[in-house]
Amino acid sequence: MTVAKDIAKEIEGVLISIPYVIGNDIIKTDAKVVVIIFPVYMWGIPLIIERFIKNFEDINDKYVYAIATHGGMPGVAINILEKVIESCKGKLSAGFTVNMPGNYVPKYGSFPEEKQKELFDNWDKKVKIIAEYIKINKQGKKENNNMIVNLLFSNLIYNHSSKNIAKMDKNFWIDEKCNKCGICQKICPV
């Protein structure tokens, strides 16, 4: 959410929540520029992002930018998104990746505060660069991992695992440490 708010502020844009509009059969906007911000899932894109793109009207008439946030490696998330957009007759103008504190705490816990500060400081610099791209409709940049990482991990893992993403939350549970605040339920789009 930080990335989306910061970009919207820099480009004087309007935030639209994907979960809020995903139920619409057709997603419309008069904006000429669309910025899609999403977290990387298994070195790819969340399935809700694919559904969003496929319901987007006139994506071929838009400058489309992508920002993928990741805690580890971004993998081929930008490439996958680009293929989905192209399958809907659109074009990805540019795609960026932003390393942020990871949120998959079962795997690696939370990042130390000094590491989090470093990542946020890096984001504060990068937001200006991305905003300049968007403001002048600059095209071309597509950030990803190197080809070997993409081939070995991203394509294999994402292609074989993405169909199971919807089932993965079945293993999520709470214990006595949960204070039942409901934040996880409110912010999870699925």
Rank of each mutant, 00 (worst) to 15 (best):
D61W: 07
L92K: 10
S87K: 12
K83P: 08
P74A: 15
V64G: 01
N79C: 02
A68Y: 03
D58M: 00
N55W: 00
A94S: 15
R51C: 10
N79T: 07
G71M: 04
I53Y: 04
G72H: 11
M73I: 10
V76C: 14
G90Y: 04
H70W: 09
D61F: 13
E82H: 06
K89M: 01
K83S: 15
M73H: 15
K62E: 00
I85S: 02
E86Y: 01
E57H: 01
D61L: 14
N79V: 01
D61V: 09
I53C: 02
N55I: 00
I85W: 02
K91N: 09
E86Q: 08
L81V: 04
Y63I: 08
S93M: 14
S87A: 12
G72Q: 11
G72Y: 08
H70M: 13
A94D: 09
V84N: 13
G75M: 14
N79K: 15
S93K: 13
E50H: 07
F56Q: 00
V84S: 12
G72F: 14
G71F: 08
D61T: 13
G71K: 05
S87L: 05
A68L: 08
G71L: 11
K89N: 13
K83I: 01
F96E: 11
K62H: 06
E86P: 01
R51W: 04
E86A: 12
D58P: 01
K89Q: 10
F96C: 11
A66T: 15
D61I: 04
M73R: 12
S93T: 14
T69A: 12
Y65S: 01
E50K: 15
T69H: 05
C88D: 00
G71R: 03
F56L: 01
A66L: 10
I80V: 08
M73C: 12
K54Y: 01
C88M: 14
A77D: 12
I80A: 05
N79G: 06
I85E: 02
I67L: 14
N60D: 09
A68H: 02
E57N: 00
R51L: 12
E82L: 06
V64M: 03
G71P: 03
K62M: 06
G75H: 08
L81Q: 10
H70P: 09
A68N: 04
F56P: 01
A66E: 03
